[in-house]
Structures are given as structure tokens and as C-alpha cells.
Computed example of a mutant assay.
Amino acid sequence: MSKKDLIDAVAKECELTKEKAGSVVDAALAHIKAVLKDGGEVRIPDFGSFKVASRKAREGRNPATGATIKIPASRVPKFSPAKGLKDALN
């Protein structure tokens, strides 16, 4: 499902115009992004939770040359599905 498909589904389900549904989807995604950027966690019941995890700096290899490179530490988003989502899939 693409963002456009999600906007179309929200518009149909909530009886909104596509422009208003697009604003709703954009606002929700922007808020999730802002909370994660601040190091917070977003929990959506029966769907899952989004968290920020830290990766340590490490060494890697350039596959083209085989040379060793340093990969800096970084923060990455993590998603953990809720039991309700897992149950819906199985």
C-alpha cells in the first residue's frame, strides 16, 4: 500500500475529500516523526509501537574494494507489532 492508497482509504472510510484525508495522514506521520526525533515512543493499541534504537559505531567492508571502513553510530526507528496485529495476520 502506498501513501496515496492510504489517503484514498481514509477519505472513503471517513467520508472526507482526498485533500482533507491527505492532510490528516500527513499530520499523523509528521507527529510520529517528531516524537521519534525527540527520542519518544509512539504506541498504537492493537497495531504496534514505534521506538528509536541506537546502533553502535562499527567497522564494515566496502564490497567493491574490500577496504575496511568505519560506520558511525546512528539512531534508527524500530517497529514492534502488537499482539492484536499479530493475531490478525495468523
Rank of each mutant, 00 (worst) to 15 (best):
A28P: 04
K3E: 09
S54R: 11
I69R: 01
K18P: 06
P45S: 15
K37H: 06
A30G: 11
G84C: 09
A64D: 02
K37A: 15
V35P: 10
I7L: 08
A27V: 12
G22L: 13
D26H: 11
K12N: 14
V52R: 04
K37C: 07
A88D: 01
L6D: 05
H31R: 10
H31C: 03
S23F: 09
H31I: 02
D38P: 00
K18V: 06
A82N: 05
I7P: 08
I44C: 09
K33Q: 12
E41T: 13
K70M: 01
I71D: 00
A30K: 13
P77M: 06
G66V: 07
A34V: 01
K37L: 12
I32G: 06
D46H: 03
K70Q: 10
K78C: 07
V42Y: 00
V42E: 01
K33T: 13
K33Y: 02
I32N: 07
T68R: 11
A73S: 15
V76K: 12
A9Q: 14
G66A: 09
K70N: 03
L89D: 03
F50I: 04
D46M: 00
F47T: 07
I7H: 08
L29N: 06
A64F: 04
E41F: 00
K51W: 01
F79C: 02
G60A: 10
A21H: 04
R58P: 02
G39V: 11
E13M: 09
I32K: 05
G40V: 00
E19K: 14
K4T: 10
L85A: 03
A21D: 13
V25I: 15
E59H: 07
K83F: 07
I69C: 02
A34Q: 12
P77Y: 05
A9H: 12
A82D: 12
V35S: 11
K33I: 02
K12E: 15
I7D: 14
G22N: 06
G39T: 07
A9D: 13
L6P: 00
E41L: 03
A67R: 09
T68Y: 01
F47G: 08
A11S: 14
G60M: 06
S49W: 02
K4H: 09
E59C: 01
D38Y: 00
A11K: 05
I71R: 00
D26S: 14
K12L: 15
N62T: 00
K20Y: 13
V24L: 12
F47S: 10
D38I: 00
P72E: 15
K78H: 05
P63F: 14
D87R: 13
S54E: 15
V52T: 15
N90I: 03
P81G: 04
D46C: 06
K12C: 08
A57E: 13
